[in-house]
Design a protein around this nucleic acid. Structure first.
Lengths: 335, 335
DNA sequence: GCCTCGTTTGTTAGCGGTAACATGCGCTCC
DNA sequence: GGAGCGCATGTTACCGCTAACAAACGAGGC
């Protein structure tokens, strides 16, 4: 920067100003500095800038996994919103564990991010303490804070009601006249559980809930697992005539397995998934599922964060927002 | 740090040493510093550390897209290898464009990463200039540098031969006795083109190449596109009896469409994909495809990078490595 | 003509660590 | 008994930039 300053015949401070806030210097100086800067190939060090200005222009983004398309879409929304504003996402992977999340968050915080985006609301007490002590904005995604919940620590959430979405699927299957409606769930994180809770309540409201038809396993979900659990369910309860699989991977696996076993879908068995992943509309038959606004959640979370990072007075803390982006039941041919 | 130093009765420098390289201080001092550090909740600022030591402990990772599972797997491999070593990946998205890549690389470099991982070898001259001027290690992935290529700028590559992989598919289809073998490709990045080149050569070697059966479109690939392009191909050339789709998304779409149209696979039409994505083994019938070591490439690239970042003498520059991790043709039932 | 004010540029003093060198101390060894 | 050495710790001077304040200058008001 000193070299550029000398070349442009100004002080280092003026170079800094000319490049960061061109409107604060005279047009002539700005031009000279830009020319010199370009000629010398000057790239200001963000590290030094961060140390001096206490703004790193980075944002910690914690997601459970890279192999689940849901969080990738979330990340993509965050990324595409932050990047144009000059913010660099710092991606951290928590592996669905609150303890790991706390560890990852701590290492991320050492990088002094200007904001934090988290997945879900299921944090350790240590994480809550940490968040409470932060002076930077924090957004929780993919879920909504219940009214009054976390009153000790105001939270901003951007997401949708997993419970309501699960309820919608249950109600839909019941409305289709199905009587033996089963559930298959894996990867039992809090959001999956809420979906199952919603589904269960819908069936209770319809007077058709049978706990025996619930198959919940802790394993990571996959197409293969969906195929396997379908077989287990049908072996144990051959009269099952509808199934909610808590995500599309499982649903696709189940669907493939139905084709293999010669089980007509939806005639003999209705199948519903969750998330509306890329291929869901193209399976044979096309899969009924719930479209979730994952990318939009990422975009909105990043927007709110940018707003919060812009004004240094953290008023957002007193005025926690709760942005419900909803969901859509995509009724296709499997039900 | 000054507070911790005072609390532990030592100098700031000793605190720094006690926390970063515990073996360089006495056992007793180390214990005192750790206790004080924990009690005060001290988290060393990586930003300040970076400025003083000229090591940011970050790595720029540039991939074309977040919505293609191939690069997510690559990223996952990189992430899981870098994280335990204390390195933080800085993810940049290039959107498959060399110009965008150069822009993204420039902004990433402002963060002073200690290393760079790039996708492919298709860079702008400006990017090559930039890379040549860097003193940090750089790894190119997903492709292999040809012998003698880029002799002006030694490159380290970790990947596999896209050409050979394409050749293997072509040879396989020919060996199955197919005579009218078509090609469907989208997202025409250099790696896709190489696969197509390999496939084409295989068919020429078998004496069965017909350029009319090649359908190459620039659009981003998707399941929907695969279905659409299958119809177009069959409409134009109803006698097609085998198809290579340049990735699994397209192949799955084509496969679904075959089921819909009542075209028996593989009896009437053989279908081969590329990448062996998660669901490929579970489609009906299971998809023949090429398993590519994407995650392993990420892991190996990160390993090489860590080695290069560890010794400050950039000897690796003189001794460029070319790590071929190969591929596997997964022959399943669609061929 | 002098004072005030706004605009542009410069000066100073850090931001929070760490590299490099200096110091002090206990030991071994001749 | 003193030179010489190795280890543990301290001191100094930055790393490259920017906040905050100071200064210089021209324009307008009375």
């Amino acid at each position: 920067m000193a070299d550029v300053a000398a070349a442009a015949g100004v002080s280092a401070m003026t170079v800094s100003r000319a490049l960061r806030r061109p409107d604060t210097v005279s047009e002539e100086v700005r031009a000279r500095v830009e020319e010199a800067s370009r000629r010398l190939g000057f790239v200001p060090s963000r590290v030094a800038s961060a140390l001096a200005s206490a703004r790193t222009m980075t944002v910690a983004v914690l997601i459970p996994s890279l192999t689940n398309a849901v969080f990738i879409d979330l990340l993509a929304g965050v990324q595409e919103t932050l990047s144009p504003q000059g913010y660099q996402p710092l991606v951290g992977i928590t592996g669905y564990g609150p303890e790991a999340e706390e560890r990852v968050l701590r290492t991320q915080l050492a990088h002094d991010p200007d904001g934090v985006i988290l997945t879900g609301l299921d944090h350790t007490p240590g994480t809550w303490d940490l968040l409470r002590s932060l002076t930077i904005p924090v957004i929780h995604t993919m879920d909504l804070a219940a009214e009054g919940e976390h009153s000790d620590c105001p939270v901003q959430t951007v997401g949708f009601s997993q419970y309501d979405a699960g309820y919608a699927v249950g109600a839909h299957l019941a409305a289709r006249g199905r009587r033996r409606i089963g559930l298959i769930a894996g990867q039992l994180d809090p959001r999956t559980r809420q979906r199952c809770d919603g589904w269960r309540q819908a069936l209770r409201d319809a007077g058709r809930h049978d706990p025996a038809l619930e198959l919940m396993v802790p394993d990571a979900t996959s197409v293969a697992l969906g195929a396997e659990l379908l077989e287990r369910t049908l072996a144990a309860h051959p009269d099952t005539d509808a199934l909610f699989l808590c995500n599309d991977d499982l649903a696709q696996g189940a669907l493939f397995q139905c084709v293999r076993l010669g089980i007509p879908v939806p005639e003999r068995l209705a199948v519903a998934g969750f998330n509306d992943l890329a291929g869901a509309a193209w399976t044979v038959p096309p899969l009924t599922t719930v479209a979730t606004p994952r990318r939009a959640i990422g975009v909105e979370a990043a927007r709110l964060l940018i707003a919060g990072m812009a004004d240094r007075t953290p008023k957002s803390r007193e005025n926690p927002r709760r942005v419900d982006l909803g969901f859509r039941l995509m009724v296709r041919e499997t039900t």
